[in-house]
Design a protein around this nucleic acid. Sequence first.
DNA 1: CCTTGTGAAATCTTTCACAGCT
DNA 2: AGCTGTGAAAGATTTCACAAGG
Lengths: 254, 254
Amino acid sequence: MATGRTHRPATRSRGIPEATVARLPLYLRALTALSERSVPTVSSEELAAAAGVNSAKLRKDFSYLGSYGTRGVGYDVEYLVYQISRELGLTQDWPVVIVGIGNLGAALANYGGFASRGFRVAALIDADPAMAGKPVAGIPVQHTDELEKIIEDNGVSIGVIATPAGAAQQVCERLVAAGVTSILNFAPTVLSVPDGVDVRKVDLSIELQILAFHEQRKAGEEAAAADGQVPPAVARKASADKGPDGDVPAVMPA
Amino acid sequence: MATGRTHRPATRSRGIPEATVARLPLYLRALTALSERSVPTVSSEELAAAAGVNSAKLRKDFSYLGSYGTRGVGYDVEYLVYQISRELGLTQDWPVVIVGIGNLGAALANYGGFASRGFRVAALIDADPAMAGKPVAGIPVQHTDELEKIIEDNGVSIGVIATPAGAAQQVCERLVAAGVTSILNFAPTVLSVPDGVDVRKVDLSIELQILAFHEQRKAGEEAAAADGQVPPAVARKASADKGPDGDVPAVMPA
DNA sequence: CCTTGTGAAATCTTTCACAGCT
DNA sequence: AGCTGTGAAAGATTTCACAAGG
């Protein structure tokens, strides 16, 4: 196995922080909306509000891409759309396969935003022979047997796994063996992949549990507030970020 | 009323870092699997591997919950399951409503992992009158007109938005006005919410764009590697770490 | 005036490495 | 001997605040 014990040599050439990368799509979406309304320029303050972040963060983020703004004026919308698209690699076509065409897989196949920006559903794959040939979202489902051939023929490097948890690791391994190097995993399981393969996961159950944690915390604070004289709900603020406070009274609800 | 009354006393008693909270569900899932196999205890090393994190991080995470392990032995699986469940607020019942019963909403309603752990789909809501009364996943869809009543009657504090982007903000406002304080948003839009309301978002398009960024970067490095003398099999290097919401399942070679 | 771009400070997160307990 | 729990170091991210430039 790989002996690359050396912690990442850190190719710092194009080092855009991961946190920044994760926000670029957000900015891009906001900018696209502005572009559709033919807004020519936008300030960091305005754009940040539209994207649900604060303006200092946005400016810092953009500073990693280069100096694309004009002091005293703001950013040229069209130009920024182009620069961010290029940075994200959206100026090229990304064929994607979806494996597992159950409820969720079908929903993903039907999701419009998929095709919108550089991504193209190259194939739908399912293990159920009864599904084979059936069109979903206008694309005929193919059997898992064809997986390797489909990946190769279409030059697919991004795979979406929407299978049951039990099948996910095996599907993952076949995708990777066939040449896929980026995986979006909707199955509620941890995937093991070789070095060099990126995995991102989307997990409903985890998100709900995180919300439950904060919900519980709020309930506890409320109870504590009833005791003291903490002012009731305050200012209305637009915020896309998660709860700021991390402070829970040691009150145990038995 | 005092204006400067500090919202948070300097007491750091129970402040679990957000990054830790986001990993607790992962640990819980791994522990549940161990529990089902009747494994009595587990070491931080084993559990970390199962959860796809490193053991130092796991031990640090657990240290915020308390000292639940035994030196020289490891952690008692059942006990940890209980402690983490309690910490996450999963020992209580969380009624949830799903708004927007299209492809995605239906997929979510059918998702088993939903009901499994403390969450219960209290109602499905859709704006289409034609949907009303139709059962999805065994639950009859109700019309949006009923939204406020449903929230109130069921004491719902967590809402899932699976509507088209255009409807999401309005639905969000109605949910919040009716008493919902945690929202899981699947619509590709930034939600504005009052202070004290938590929003988490799940966005296919954003995840794909982040993958595309790394995919593009890999392609660039490959080209650069071809210039040098890195053997093809090992030429790929990982960015390894993910952003705020993501983790990379690490592969632990023997 | 205006708003960007950015060093520096503050804060949060991960990792290291080992003392301390079983 | 083995493994946890944790200070302290290292690293990443956010925020501040202001100089620089339109």
